[in-house]
Amino acid sequence: MNVAMSGSELADAIREIDSEAVTDQSDDAVWITAESWPDVAASLRDSEALSFEMLSLLTTVDYIDHFEVIYHLLSLSKNRTGVVKIRCGEGRIDPTVPTAINVWRGADLQEREAYDLMGVKFEGHPNMKRLMLWEGFEGHPLRKDYLR
């Protein structure tokens, strides 16, 4: 049976990696800072206790005053899932998150899609181009302030 890691459990594990990374936690998710993400991601994948081998889903949500990037992580060997969230772009200004492509190759297309539709930039992605829409399209349609 699936064990979804609770927020506190995951928060403890992340604090071991980087003591200042965790900013907030809820029942099922952990919020961490964007700066700590590359190290945390690599450790989440590589540590024996967690071994989140797969980035199941990368989502971005526009919460009007800020953006949130949500990583659904999956450990096949432990059969566990965990949710890590990163707040970015406070005040809708320049949402930027370090890329996870060097840790999970599966982030590639998802990050491009997130950039395309939500306008969250992923620093360090080698090919940060639009995925769904054409080059030269203005705006990012999934933002709440996008008007047709």
Partner: peptide, 16 residues
């Protein structure tokens, strides 16, 4: 049985 634990692969660079 859970899937055999495997080491995570190295990223093979960006797409295109």
């Amino acid at each position: 049985a859970l899937p055999r634990p495997r080491p995570a692969g190295q990223p093979s660079g960006g797409d295109s």
